[in-house]
């Protein structure tokens, strides 16, 4: 297995895997933060969609890829804020709201985009270019896989560490986790459950927004409809698969990303499987992984339940 030719095939595959895993990972990190605070966020897909579009607009307006990333982040965060207010203050059903967010995002982005297109605005914008990290990108095997990517990928490496650190080593993380496990304990400890959840959900939207930005401004330097294609849900699967832990979720995302990369490779190699089955492959893999490995991982105990439940 270590023959140079096979390695040469494996490396681009894994590099592509890392690249394809990144948008998933942004959303998964967002999902972890939100769910750890007790809010089920099915609207990640919609927030990613808003992020794709926000990045397009941002890059269009500022002429820079980072402007796009910022735009995507804002779009995701604002969408999440809307969701958060309804879920936390009005205590509406979180699954229904999440579904609404997804429908809203699809409709709204298509609506504005088509209007922009009619007005003659170009589909293409400034996007990110790959940047090889000096020194690190020259390490054999690891270098080409991890350090010859676009800057948004490097950002997500940093974010994994940051999120893990905040979650486990800071008072913020402690408060967040307490709110998701036993909100009334947090409440009596003087923590504002609503405020913590609001911030968590908004942050999750911001992250999902960057994940969406990756797909438009990071991958194709343009906008089309249907870029996200269910990735928000795969990210959610990665969250559950990774047991709400950033590092484990990163592993799950890498797995799904590599499967996606594999499927593209197989299409390119004209493997004799119809390309529709290849397209199906990441979803089937996710489903199988789910079935086989996720028995009863324990979610945050207060997940999905509005607080307070009774009135006082």
């Amino acid at each position: 297995m270590n023959s140079p030719i096979e390695l040469a095939m494996l490396i681009p595959l894994l590099a592509a895997g890392v690249r394809l895993a990144t948008p998933l990972l942004y959303s998964a990190l967002g999902g972890i933060i939100s769910e750890r605070s007790g809010v089920t966020n099915i609207g990640l897909e919609g927030m990613m969609i808003m992020g794709t579009f926000g990045a397009y607009v941002g890059s269009h307006l500022t002429g820079s890829a980072w402007g796009g990333a910022l735009g995507g982040m804002l779009a995701g965060a604002l969408t999440a804020l809307l969701f958060a207010v309804m879920a936390i203050f009005f205590r509406a059903d979180q699954v229904v709201l999440g579904t609404g967010v997804n429908i809203l995002a699809l409709g709204l982005t298509a609506f504005i985009y088509r209007a922009m297109y009619k007005a003659g605005i170009s589909q293409f914008v400034t996007g990110f270019k790959a940047w090889n990290v000096p020194l690190l990108s020259d390490i054999p095997v690891i270098g080409p896989i991890f350090f010859r990517q676009i800057p948004l990928v490097y950002l997500v490496y940093v974010l994994i560490a940051v999120v893990a650190f905040i979650l486990y080593r800071t008072t913020w993380g402690l408060k967040l986790r307490s709110v998701g496990e036993l909100p009334r304990a947090a409440d009596t400890a003087g923590i504002s459950v609503a405020r913590v959840r609001l911030m968590a959900v908004t942050a999750s939207g911001a992250l999902a927004g960057i994940g969406g930005a990756f797909l438009s401004v990071g991958e194709i330097s343009a906008f089309t409809e249907g870029l996200v294609a269910g990735r928000g849900f795969i990210a959610l699967a990665a969250v559950i698969f990774g047991r709400w832990d950033p590092l484990r979720a990163a592993g799950a995302c890498l797995l799904f990303g590599t499967a996606d990369a594999l499927q593209y490779r197989m299409q390119a190699l004209k493997v004799p499987i119809s390309y529709e089955f290849l397209l199906m492959f990441p979803y089937v893999l996710t489903l199988l992984a789910f079935i086989l490995f996720v028995h009863r991982s324990k979610p945050p105990a207060a997940l999905g339940k509005p607080y307070p439940e009774k009135q006082s």
């Binding site: 309804m86 009005f90 509406a92 059903d93 429908i103 409709g107 298509a110 609506f111």
Partner: peptide
Amino acid sequence: PSTIVSVIQAVVIFLVAVSVVW
């Protein structure tokens, strides 16, 4: 663009979800 209907649908979903609790 006909996708505006999705926006209207989403608004309906949000408002009804909130009103149910109310």
